[in-house]
């Protein structure tokens, strides 16, 4: 069995993924609009799993909506809210419903979100979750019991190529590769020189790397991310570029920057593709693709 996304990863083409952030509530209208807008423009659509530990409509529900509309979903699965029993149950459900790509994440810490008093589970971590999936694929659960009907997933993970210090991240990256990760969608990349250095290292492993592109919507947002989001460092020249944009034109400038970066990554074959995160601005993704000179 192979998934459409796995086929795209192995086709040699420059792979494009993006993501859908489900709403807080049951009004799914906007989420469906975003899915409809993006499903045919990208190779797969991730659906976030209570991103930043903020309670929302679940990733599984968003993935089912992507499938319903003929898109190719990537189920983001964190270890924050479920123990190994619940994770396995959800994987069985996902597979049975046709969701066959999974991005394995540890998950953000509970206190950064909007239910600060909740219990963080973290029974497993991202590396152990990858192992768990491979175990299920072998026909037994994590307790060693035989499954009545198993699963098969295209599994991925994340890496932070600009983390300081970097070496412990790379050790973990290699553990993820050993655990069977086929693709990586990286944390936001802005410094292409640094990222190229990371790719020179990462190329020795048989995995596909999609560079994380987070849309910058203003100089203020860029400064905020640099100051507050771990592993993100927007270079000063990009911040200046956003600051110098004409009034009301910062978002357009951000789209241009994202497009330019994607075009460079593709032209210089630096990595295997990009994962575009236009947090809360999913409707800007087609403009980014146009700015990158990609077919829409």
């Amino acid at each position: 069995m192979t998934t459409r996304f796995r086929q795209a990863l192995n086709s040699g083409k420059f792979v494009i993924t993006s993501e859908i952030g489900p709403p807080k509530g049951t009004n799914l209208e906007k989420m469906y609009q975003h899915i409809d807008l993006l499903k045919d423009k990208v190779d797969a659509l991730n659906v976030t799993d209570h991103q930043s530990s903020v309670m929302r409509f679940p990733s599984m529900g968003g993935c089912l909506a992507v499938l319903e509309n003929g898109g190719e979903p990537v189920l983001q699965m964190t270890c924050r809210d479920r123990n190994r029993i619940a994770l396995q149950g959800d994987l069985l459900l996902a597979y049975s419903k046709g969701i066959k790509n999974v991005l394995c994440l540890t998950g953000d810490a509970v206190p950064v979100g909007d239910h600060r008093a909740a219990k963080g589970i973290f029974d497993l971590d991202s590396v152990q979750l990858l192992h768990l999936i491979r175990r299920l694929e072998g026909g037994t659960d994590f307790g060693g019991n035989e499954l009545l009907g198993s699963v098969e997933f295209c599994t991925g993970a994340t890496v932070t190529p600009e983390a300081i210090p970097l070496e412990p991240q790379l050790f973990k990256f290699e553990k993820k590769v050993d655990a069977g990760a086929e693709f990586f969608q990286t944390q936001a990349v802005y410094d292409l020189e640094k990222f190229t250095g990371f790719m020179q290292y990462a190329r020795q492993f048989p995995v596909k790397i999609l560079a994380g592109i987070v849309l910058l919507s203003s100089a203020r947002m860029a400064r905020y991310m640099t100051a507050h989001v771990p592993g993100i460092n927007v270079p000063q020249n990009l911040i200046d570029e956003l600051a110098q944009a004409p009034k009301g034109g910062a978002l357009q400038k951000g789209i241009e920057i994202a497009g330019r970066m994607i075009a460079t990554l593709k032209k210089e074959s630096i990595c295997d593709g990009v994962h575009i995160m236009a947090i809360n601005r999913e409707e800007a993704v087609p403009d980014i693709l146009v700015a990158a000179g990609l077919p829409v």
């Binding site: 540890t106 998950g107 953000d108 810490a109 206190p111 950064v112 963080g120 973290f122 971590d125 991202s126 590396v127 152990q128 994340t158 932070t160 983390a163 300081i164 210090p165 412990p168 991240q169 050790f171 973990k172 553990k175 944390q187 771990p230 592993g231």
Partner: peptide, 20 residues
Amino acid sequence: CHKGLLNGPCGGTNNGKCEV
């Protein structure tokens, strides 16, 4: 480690400090 991880730092590690 805030999350009690065993296999290395999470993506929230920030210049040697914790995301929490």
